[in-house]
């Protein structure tokens, strides 16, 4: 019973936050709604006893990524309200709404109806054993231990590749925002300013 209440409250927070992101006319409000969504997802992770992922969700998403968004919004000075009542492309919202309904129907259809041979679609999977020998979730073992076991044995190459990916992303960010023309960069150093 508590499970259901927790799920419903966090689902409301998640969907409300998502609605806030797509409907707010101020970028800062959208970023703060995004925080609500991330916290709701973290609660759902805790509910499924994925404690480490919940922690990482809060630190990386709600911490780093949203702060990065807010930083860029403030830095660029784009924190102005946007008029959402005008619709520059005629019929875009209607088409997007229709496409959204279709995609939702497709996913839910795949969940409940479709699937080769199975009468319950993707949900039929949950009754079967997966093909690769699963490292089974044991509630007595800690979540971090299981994840580390999988990460550093079966997925160690992918793990190293992510290290490379993060390095490339960092270098790419520096290269992209570097001031290439060298125009009007005023270095305000106290030692040289008075001279």
């Amino acid at each position: 019973m508590v499970d259901i209440i927790v799920f419903l409250i966090s689902a409301a927070i998640i969907l409300g936050g998502a609605a806030g992101v797509i409907a707010s006319n101020h970028p800062v409000h959208a970023a703060l709604s995004l925080v609500a969504t991330f916290f709701g997802v973290a609660v759902l992770f805790v509910q499924q006893s994925a404690h480490f992922l919940a922690l990482v969700q809060v630190v990386v998403y709600a911490g780093a990524i949203v702060v990065l968004f807010l930083f860029v919004i403030m830095l660029l000075g784009v924190d102005e309200t946007e008029d959402l009542t005008v619709e520059p492309l005629g019929g875009q919202r209607q088409l997007a709404g229709i496409l959204g309904v279709l995609v939702l129907g497709l996913i839910l259809g795949g969940l409940f109806v479709a699937g080769p041979g199975g009468d319950r679609g993707a949900l039929a999977l949950t009754g079967q054993q997966s093909k690769t020998l699963p490292i089974e979730l044991d509630e007595s073992e800690s979540d971090v231990q299981l994840l580390a076991e999988d990460l550093f044995t079966r997925n160690v190459v992918a793990f190293e590749a992510t290290a490379l990916l993060l390095t490339i992303a960092t270098v790419g960010a520096v290269v992209l925002v570097r001031n290439q023309g060298g125009e009007d960069v005023v270095v305000d150093e106290p030692g040289t300013a008075s001279a």
């Binding site: 499924q48 006893s49 994925a50 992922l53 990482v56 969700q57 990386v60 998403y61 780093a64 990524i65 990065l68 968004f69 860029v72 999977l125 949950t126 079967q128 054993q129 997966s130 690769t132 699963p134 490292i135 089974e136 979730l137 979540d143 299981l146 994840l147 076991e149 999988d150 990460l151 079966r154 997925n155 992918a158 992510t162 990916l165 993060l166 490339i168 992303a169 960092t170 790419g172 960010a173 992209l176 925002v177």
Partner: peptide, 30 residues
């Protein structure tokens, strides 16, 4: 799915999605 299939691979996938999302945001915002 990780919980339903009793397989930790789904959680590993979430870990990688987090890393890729962080990299994507860094490059996109720059």
């Amino acid at each position: 799915f990780s919980g339903a299939l009793n397989d930790v691979a789904g959680r590993t996938a979430v870990f990688f999605v987090l890393v890729v999302a962080a990299a994507e945001v860094v490059v996109g915002l720059s």
